[in-house]
Each structure stands twice: as structure tokens, then as C-alpha cells.
Design a protein around this nucleic acid. Structure first.
Lengths: 223, 223
DNA sequence: CGGAATCCTCTTCGATACTG
DNA sequence: CAGTATCGAAGAGGATTCCG
């Protein structure tokens, strides 16, 4: 049995940017972190959230990121008996980098291709951190296809996690297309709600969805 | 002759983060952008600023980044007859990403190794954008080893470019070690000036160097 | 001499098959 | 379900050669 953990070749530069890239600069690494931003996930979830990643590469990246202290592997308590991967503090601290990459990609990135893969979670990425009028403590569950999220507000900013809302004040079930239209600015919150099924407080739902509106519109290039 | 420009395999995801990484996610790409942050550079400068990069990889990355609109290639006017590479608007827009990577690398990155390469320019990266008390229009030239920079202030924030200061109000010649001590917080501005040769207005020099002080200190981990 | 392009080797990636 | 194993293809690393 081989114990070799395949570390990427270091740049060997006494520069903090290079040292950061020593850890997260490899192919797939930052996308793997992206997949963990809404909470812990299992190996299988990660594999489907990263379409095209070979299983050996996923395993390798998980090992490297664990060695670097970005990700931890944890076994959930007894009955479920399932192991999940989740971000450490250092991993959560990568969020600003992902946010900036998202902004840059929207403005300057290549046009998305017609047959690119899409996932509901990716549509929510642009909304986190935006101002939310959702009262503290109120939560809204959002169901899109087979995936569920819950939206809440922390210090006036939208927070998204995976899973059912613990105390959902509203449950919105929305087609994926409607969600994409909403975040790309082609649909208003009002229209998105109209195309959804809402259980519970519609006003809460409306406020929870508000930060998602046009969150992924491509800003006008300024040069 | 082959016209194939070796494009990195795209992730094929309809996610702005993935599309950004399609452009700048390859090995060396962001470091190449880093090398251009202080202004245009020649092929040779880039090669020495990226120790270890094979020449074919450098050529390839330059082509890809040009194709993506991040970098332009330009021939300097007649007498010099030299071609340089420089950032476009899209390339300069990558700055926040580099800044965040730098912050993250300082706090969570691997310890720098003893035999890592070091360059004066890398030491200045942490200072740009910091508040500067340098009066608008005043500039200070900083010479470290064979490399020269000029520091100025734009809207109260430090700006760094390569080359001699056009109208230098002060010229500071500093040993590389002193610069590293300054940015890592082991030396104060006063001590750094004491170990340097200053021509011109010492007060201007002091104010120009101020934002560099402790710019690359590793922040205390908060968990 | 600066600015690349070419070889060649070796590692990593991608795709698929396989196992505890 | 959560990974290993295998193998061809692609890309990185290093040195050398070419060209204007």
C-alpha cells in the first residue's frame, strides 16, 4: 500500500499569493470548496456536484485539502453512519476569493456554452451576502428539483445552507428554470413566486428570495 | 506551422466561478497576472519573475490570456523596438482576487520554505491599496537591488509602478533585506530609512514607505 | 542578445473498471 | 456508497535550438 499523498508541486516562491495557490491553485480545488459552501457534503454529492471530475482526482483533492487544513472529514453520529466533508475555518475564509471569482467571471468570463451543466446551488451562490430584509430568526425553505436549501438572514445578509429548514416559516417549491430566470434578472421575485408553490408565509418567501433577484446579471463592461 | 492554441479543458459548468477559472485557473496563470500588476513587462522579465516556469508554458499562457482578453501584447515605440505584455481592463479587474489570495495565503498558507525564491516586487504587493499619507502628485522612487519602483498616491491609496519616478521627490535605495524586514513588521519605517540611502525629501520618503510597514504580517488566526 | 519554438521525459489528468 | 486500480492522453518541467 502506498502512502504517498500526491502534493502538487509547490511554486517555491516566498509570496503569499503563490503560497495560497500552492494549496488551492490546482484544477478542481476551488470548485470543490464551492461545493462545500452551503454545508457538509458526502463524497457522492461532491462527485455529482463536480460533473466530469474523475473519482481518483476527487479523492486526491480531498486528501490534499485535508492535509492543508481546508477541509475536514467527519463521520455523522451513529444511526446514519455516513461520512461527510466540510470546510474548516480556513476553508470558509476562502469565500471572498470565490465571490471575487464569481464577479469577475460574470463580467469578463467566457460566454456559457449551451450544453454546460447547471445546478440549483450554483444559482444561489451570487445571492449569499447580499442585503436581506428577512427578519432575523425567520427562515424560508427553497426546493428546486431534488435539492433543498434554506435561506435565512444573518446581520441583514442572506445566508444559504443545504437541507430542510429547521423551523420553516415558508416553503417555496420552484422549477429550476424559474430560479435561473430569477437570478439572471429575467424574472422578478413576484413572477418567480407566481410560478412556484408556496406553503406558509408568502411575505417571508418574498423577502427571502429578494436578494436572489438579478444576482447573476452580467454587469455592463466599463471599458 | 501549427495554429493550435492549447486551450485548457473547460469545466463546462454554467457557473461564473467555473467560467472565471476556465480563464485564470491554470497553473501559473494568476502568477503571470501578478507579475504584470506593476506595469508592462517583457517576456524575459516574466520568465525571471516566474522562476521555474518552462518557456513553452510561459508562451502558452501568454497566448491563452491574450485570447481571453486579459493580456495584450504591444510593441513599444520606435527606438526601443521591444515588445511588452500588459494587463487589459479585464486583467486589472483580477486585482481583488490576487488581494484576497494574498490575505488568505498570509493567514492560512503553508509556511514559506527556507529556500523559496524572493523578489522585491512581491514584497510590495501587500502595500498597494493601503491608505497613504503621500500628497497627491508627489512620488517616491524605491530602488531595491537592480529593480526600481515608484510609489505614489491615488485617492489616498498607495500605487506602485515599475520604473524610475518621472518626477521623483525622493529616491530611496534600500537593501532587499531591509525591505523584507519592513513589510514583515520586523522593522519600522524609521529604521528602514536609517538603513537606506535617501536622496531628496526624507519626509516624502517616509510617507511613501508608511503603507508598506507590516503589510505582510501574518494575522493571528482567529479560531 | 532578446524572444520565442522544439524535443524529450515525467507527472498528472480523464475515463472507466473494479473492490471492501 | 466510498473509494482504489489501471491505462492512454494531455500537460508540466527542463534543456536545448532556432530566429531576427
Amino acid at each position: 500500500m502506498k502512502y504517498t499523498v500526491a502534493f502538487m508541486k509547490r511554486y517555491g516562491q516566498a509570496c503569499a499569493i503563490a503560497r495560497a495557490l500552492d494549496v488551492v491553485g490546482e484544477r478542481w480545488s476551488l470548485l470543490l470548496v464551492r461545493e462545500l459552501t452551503f454545508g457538509p457534503r458526502r463524497y457522492r454529492d461532491l462527485a455529482t456536484g463536480l460533473p466530469g471530475i474523475p473519482s481518483n482526482v476527487l479523492t486526491g483533492r480531498l486528501k490534499e485539502l485535508q492535509a492543508a487544513g481546508v477541509v475536514t472529514r467527519r463521520a455523522l453520529p451513529a444511526p446514519t453512519d455516513v461520512t461527510v466533508y466540510e470546510l474548516t475555518g480556513a476553508g470558509r475564509a476562502l469565500q471572498p476569493i470565490l465571490d471575487d471569482l464569481l464577479d469577475w467571471g460574470l463580467r469578463y468570463g467566457p460566454e456559457p456554452s449551451q450544453d454546460d451543466a447547471g445546478q440549483p446551488g450554483w444559482a444561489l451562490l451570487g445571492g449569499v451576502g447580499r442585503p436581506s430584509a428577512l427578519p432575523e430568526g425567520q427562515t424560508c425553505e427553497l426546493r428546486v428539483g431534488l435539492e433543498g436549501f434554506y435561506l435565512s438572514s444573518d446581520a441583514g445578509k442572506l445566508t444559504v445552507r443545504r437541507g430542510p429548514a429547521p423551523d420553516g416559516d415558508a416553503v417555496v417549491t420552484m422549477p429550476a428554470d424559474t430560479l435561473y430566470s430569477l437570478v439572471t434578472g429575467q424574472t422578478t421575485v413576484t413572477d418567480a413566486v407566481r410560478h412556484s408553490t408556496v406553503n406558509g408565509d408568502t411575505e417571508i418567501a418574498r423577502r427571502a428570495l429578494e436578494p436572489l433577484a438579478a444576482a447573476l446579471t452580467r454587469p455592463a463592461p466599463n471599458n
